[in-house]
């Protein structure tokens, strides 16, 4: 019984699910910071799940080592890019969204 193929299908479907939620968040959230919150976290997890699924399907070789490099690189780079762009938005004076009764 080969177990890696069903596991790979499970991880790929999980990755597609988190990509979908991140895109819905990008479309539906009210302001810039909330949208960045959705894509920054959701896309990082979705990329990790998809990479695990592809490396399980391909088997253990030099390719899976390079896929591990991509995963490590994405976990360093993606939060840093999100931090930089959100900080630039805050510096340029984008107001965070608030509820009507909480507005100052």
């Amino acid at each position: 019984m080969n177990l890696t193929t069903p596991l790979s299908i499970l991880f790929m479907v999980g990755g597609l699910f988190f990509f979908t939620t991140a895109t819905i968040g990008l479309l539906r959230f009210p302001d810039f910071f909330a949208r960045l919150h959705a894509t920054g976290k959701g896309d990082t997890l979705a990329v990790l799940l998809s990479l695990i699924g592809i490396s399980l399907y391909e088997g253990f070789s030099l390719t899976s080592l390079k896929i591990a490099f991509i995963a490590v690189f994405m976990f360093w780079a993606q939060p840093t890019a999100t931090h930089a762009i959100s900080r630039a938005g805050l510096r340029r004076g984008i107001k965070p969204w608030m509820k009507k009764e909480n507005k100052i």
Partner: peptide
């Protein structure tokens, strides 16, 4: 330079790789 320690540190670590 960026006056931001997160971006500077990550760039310094990632550049050799």
């Amino acid at each position: 330079a960026y006056d931001d320690i997160i971006v500077k540190t990550i760039a310094r670590i990632l550049t050799p790789f």
